[in-house]
Design a binder for these strands. Structure first.
Lengths: 230, 230
DNA sequence: CGGAGCGGTGTCGTATCTGTCACGCGCCGT
DNA sequence: ACGGCGCGTGACAGATACGACACCGCTCCG
């Protein structure tokens, strides 16, 4: 699986307060969060963008968590995504069933938040080739997620939070064309109402910064589709 | 070995639940934790950052724990790192073999968590002969954990407990950006309800002290993300 | 009991960021 | 050539994050 600046965690949980707790804690740890309140929504979101990890509630309205797990683990493009199951049941039989369906870990409610965080990190570390630095590169551009620094040709560049996330998105998949909608989802977050033209403006700002010390514009405008790096 | 305010413990254990338990308990004791699920990952992580202590499972997929132990103990830069071996076997012969390979202590599963914690602390105490600099440095700033003293450019600085821990956190990973939430976790402690704005104030106080005798502000504000040293 | 040191919160001013709009330009089909 | 469309960009106002300061409460100690 590809490495990311902000690992993307999908939370599938029908209880709003539970979702909020998970979301808050995972965000505090620097993860990018998506939420789904039922299985259908979860499957839809997964098909749109493959997350790096899924926290999946056992009990869900409609399609059960265990079924979701099975489906995700049988699709080739999502088979490798680690899944942590949450369950209110404590029977050993369920634990076994949970792991049998392909879940990578299993946490019983009520759980310790610290423990869950530890397990999330552990799963991510496992699925991510350790040692691959947090530094994204493309040609003479480097972006260090940990220090939040961006260099081009040795020069330190100064860019705002949005431009930083935008560039990080491009650097994750150089060459890939991102539509404005996709960027709004990833950079601004889902359920944020913003005009798509706003993306254009920030692209312009990012371009300006990237070209401050001379050098060609590395961003490519794909008319009618979006933007890409390189 | 590099000395730290929060000793860094590497856990090498393939069983996720076991890892979680160890991680949880050691974190509660104030240690900073890294986890590896097999020998290769462990060696990789050790080569990246030398921990202060290693808790090493005997049975591991791939390279065995005993082999890991031998390798770590034969590298000059990691020879001094204490290793506590965990094993499900209770035969005396294994205990001997474990210690022969260079492990510093040996705990048989199932073990008492309390006992393991005690042994971890004991090893750390032993490996850290008082007086051998527990000093963190960055440029002209030095922080001595043992004497609780901070110098900058030879001048002794006077800072309160919170600012001290704050600075220590920064010095552990110069350059890294810490979010306010992460700092609250590390400096104030988990499950402490404090406004994140409080961090700002203490950052301000720390800055003021660090600049008392002139000198540039070494702290960097990363808008929208947090703070970093350097 | 009272003062000093320290820590947490509220407020305010400011620098910076951000979203939107308007206008201009080039591309393209007609 | 013309008009529609997509895109680039400068300007601007609103929002936001941050820094500085003052205040209040707590604790420790004599």
């Amino acid at each position: 699986m590809r490495q990311q600046v902000q690992p993307h965690v999908l939370i599938v949980e029908d209880e709003p307060s539970q979702r909020a707790v998970l979301s808050y804690n995972l965000e505090s740890e620097g993860f990018r969060i998506s939420e789904a309140e039922d299985g259908d929504a979860a499957l839809l979101m997964v098909s749109e963008e493959v997350p790096d990890l899924i926290v999946l509630d056992w009990m869900l309205p409609g399609v059960s968590g265990i079924e979701i797990c099975r489906r995700i683990k049988t699709r080739p493009e999502t088979r490798e995504v680690p899944i942590i199951m949450l369950s209110a049941r404590s029977e050993e039989v369920d634990r076994v069933r949970g792991l049998e369906t392909g879940a990578d870990d299993y946490v019983v409610k009520p759980y310790s938040v610290t423990e869950l965080m530890a397990r999330v990190k552990a799963q991510l570390r496992r699925s991510r080739p350790a040692g691959v630095g947090e530094t994204l590169r493309y040609e003479d551009i480097t972006l260090d997620a940990e220090t939040h620094r961006v260099h081009r040709g040795g020069q330190l560049l100064k860019l705002g939070p949005t431009e930083f996330r935008l560039l990080a998105t491009f650097l994750e998949k150089p060459g890939r064309v991102w539509s404005r909608e996709q960027m709004l989802d990833r950079v601004w977050g889902r359920d944020v109402y913003v005009d798509t033209r706003t993306v254009d403006v920030h692209i312009g700002r990012l371009r300006k910064v990237l070209c401050t010390h001379g050098g060609a514009d590395p961003l490519r405008t794909v008319r009618g589709a979006g933007y890409a790096l390189g």
